[in-house]
Amino acid sequence: MKFEVTILGSSSATPIFNRNPTAQVLNINEKLYLVDCAEGTQQQMLRFDVRASRIDYIFISHLHGDHYLGLVGLLSSLHLNGRKKALKVFCPAPLKEIIDLQLKYSETTLHYPVEFVFTSDEKREVILDNQDIIVETIPLDHRIPTTGFLFKQKKRLRKLIKEKLEELEIPVPYYTALKKGRDYEAPDGTIYKNDTLTIDSDEPKTYAYCSDTLYTEKYFEQINSATLLYHESTFLNDMLDRALITHHTTALQAGEVALKTNAAKLIIGHFSARYKTLNELLDEARSVFPNTELAVEGKTFVISE
């Protein structure tokens, strides 16, 4: 099952040359999930060939403008382009009031339903459970209510050993039962154990999206052993005092999060506009956690094939 994330924006607070504020799109089994939607996100979608019409789920981490100001424009464009199917938006509750007000004063009535599912930074909770993925909120510690999101791939069915099935002439209609773990009884009464006919599927993969937050260990247990961890890294560690005041994380601290939570890979983003180049941020994170990459716009990170 395809499971990958493409970076649409990696700047914090304000856009700068070559960097837009935060937005990412996940492709999970050919379904698209948008995570945060800063201003300019639609342009980034066009730039990186992401079809907005394929997005059915949008996740907004918090209500600082660099994470949601592109949303009303996206909703309006989907309306103008004739969208009819429903859209789900997972977000802090006040966002619905903001969007309703913007639509009211532009005298816009969307031609498709939008369902708002409200998140809370008080506790972790499952907010989406479909055939491919389970999504949990990650309560974070920022200046306003903020959550990250943990995307957990569902356990896949067992894999068939086709040579064995053909050898035993097992009927094709029985394959689904085998994938679900059932043994096979041949016409002569012989029982073939499932583990002789199938192999276990790969372990489910996870993507942890940790948006704006103060460095804290309160979410470490929840994101432990993430296949891919995205963590904000607004500042270099020489600006730790500023990070504490603004409730952000440094690149060094992001590396420590990845190390302490046994992440397989770390990507860092949400870079302050003061940094025109990002090599120092990358080097700082890698000094603690070598398997780190930058959330460079347009780059796709494969979580599972």
Results as ranks from 00 to 15, higher is better:
M1H: 05
M1D: 05
E4H: 09
T6S: 00
L8F: 07
S11A: 15
A13N: 13
A13R: 13
T14A: 14
I16N: 07
T22V: 03
N27L: 14
N27A: 12
I28K: 01
L32E: 01
A38T: 06
A38V: 03
Q42C: 14
Q44N: 03
M45S: 01
M45K: 02
L46E: 07
R54D: 13
H62N: 15
H67S: 01
Y68E: 03
H79S: 05
N81I: 11
R83H: 02
R83N: 10
L87W: 11
E97L: 05
E97D: 00
Q102T: 14
E107M: 12
P113W: 03
S120M: 15
E122W: 11
I127L: 11
D129L: 13
N130P: 02
N130C: 10
D141F: 09
P145E: 08
R156K: 10
E163S: 15
E166T: 15
E166F: 15
E167I: 05
P171Q: 07
V172M: 10
Y175F: 13
T176M: 02
A186Q: 12
D188A: 11
T190K: 06
Y192G: 07
K193T: 13
T196N: 09
T196E: 08
D202K: 06
T206F: 02
A208W: 02
Y209W: 11
C210D: 06
L214M: 12
K218C: 01
L229D: 01
Y230P: 09
F235V: 12
L236E: 00
L236W: 06
D238K: 14
R242I: 14
T246Y: 14
H247F: 09
T249L: 10
E256N: 12
K260F: 05
A264E: 15
K265Y: 09
Y275C: 02
K276I: 14
L294P: 01
V302H: 09
I303C: 10
S304M: 03
